[in-house]
Design a protein around this nucleic acid. Structure first.
Lengths: 227, 227
DNA sequence: GATGGACCATGAAAATCCTCATCGTGGAGG
DNA sequence: CCTCCACGATGAGGATTTTCATGGTCCATC
């Protein structure tokens, strides 16, 4: 599997390359948009990791050019934490996933694998939702019944996981591995507490309750309205 | 590469197995000490991951038996956070590394790889030290000039990294990748702050200063006493 | 239907961590 | 030698996360 990394910051670029190499991928890198575009048009890549902020041409432009040239390579966007609105437009151009800096390498790797596994692109997921709960992956914004809800990083990760597996029971161990990097400490209740915080924010003041406890199993995001 | 996991807690066992499988290892598991011993004696493994707390025979006994039978398989111990003194003895029996629960999977994987890479066992590292600074890997205890110093998880990870690479300059990016799971946010000073906290604990009140800043490069643990 | 135990919920406190603003300092270039 | 600038140090503040203690609830068993 061959991956092209387009990222101007040398350190980040080097570490992504190293990390992905160690994970068994062949990796090319480009530090600017023009070379990136050229490479993407001439070489064959299974995936492109594309920083939006580049010194010359920005990421969207490159993506757009690729798509217009009929190239259906999966693209994983790297975006900076701020400057939200700007970015939305880019993702609408056909990126396949996004990642907001800063991020853990494990996270990147997981997404890379997902993208590669599902083959050619499956169009952008900008938001997830269940009932009247909406979660905007790009801006990391959450609304319930139209109301904006403030949410922290961990809470977001947890909620995203729940939403990506609606109506599936998620065992604690799975949650721990996804949201806490597989930190399975049998005698801690971090997850319970995190669920509690999440409920306080998105369920306490609303109906129907979305987060359901499945005794002895774990938690699930239940859209059936309770039955 | 074939690994044997000996761990009684089903969840942990399953997740280790899954994780290591995905990382490309062949994995057998055992939920108790007797089977584990039997497997280790009959099958060929490149590494054994061994929980000390088992329902029947404890980890040390198994390790001891293996060593006495002349089996030089690398062993990675999993220990619980508490009950410190008990454990020290086990490690003296010839385990090759240890890991204190809870731990991140990334950490486990790193150690597994290290152990496999360096081939047959290289005897236990129970503690690291530099000048009058001592760090007990098992109990996660730190002393400077004989005085016990309280330390947090992150601080410990950072200090361990510095100690494992004494007199080498560690670039920020490397530190970020090791201590923060490759969380490279170019404009944050988490590392600086963490170094600050560490210095406050192990350097401020002592001489010589061990943590040295290498301008433009990073930090290093310097045992040369400053020159 | 009572009892006990495992499992979960919850609030509050404590620990830890990160951000931010400001200050200090070393070194290059004048 | 002086000035300026980039880089690092530092303290304070706040946000987040974790721990802990307690209380509630479900369910198996008697």
């Amino acid at each position: 599997m061959k991956i092209l990394i387009v990222e101007d910051e040398a350190k980040i670029c080097a570490y992504l390359q190293q990390g992905l190499n160690e994970a068994g991928f062949v990796v090319d890198t480009s530090r600017n948009g023009l070379d990136a575009h050229h490479l993407a048009m001439t070489e064959h890549y299974d995936l492109i990791i594309l920083d939006v902020m580049l010194p010359d041409v920005d990421g969207w432009t490159i993506l757009k050019a690729l798509r217009e040239a009929g190239r259906d390579i999966p693209v994983l966007f790297l975006t900076a934490r701020d400057s939200v609105d700007d970015r939305v437009k880019g993702l609408e151009l056909g990126a396949d996933d996004y990642l907001v800096k800063p991020f853990a390498f494990a996270e990147l790797l997981a997404r890379v694998r997902t993208l590669l596994r599902r083959g050619i692109n499956r169009s952008t997921e900008t938001r997830l939702s269940a009932a009247d709960l909406e979660l905007d992956l790009l801006s990391r914004r959450v609304t319930r019944a139209g109301q904006r809800v403030a949410i922290t990083t961990r809470e977001f990760a947890l909620l995203e996981l729940l939403l990506r597996h609606q109506n599936e029971v998620l065992p604690r161990s799975l949650i721990a591995s996804q949201v806490w990097d597989m930190n399975f400490d049998s005698d801690t209740n971090v997850i319970d507490v995190a669920i509690r915080r999440l409920r306080a924010k998105i369920d306490d003041a609303f109906e129907p309750k979305l987060i359901r406890t499945v005794r002895g199993m774990g938690y699930m995001l239940d859209t059936s309205g309770g039955n």
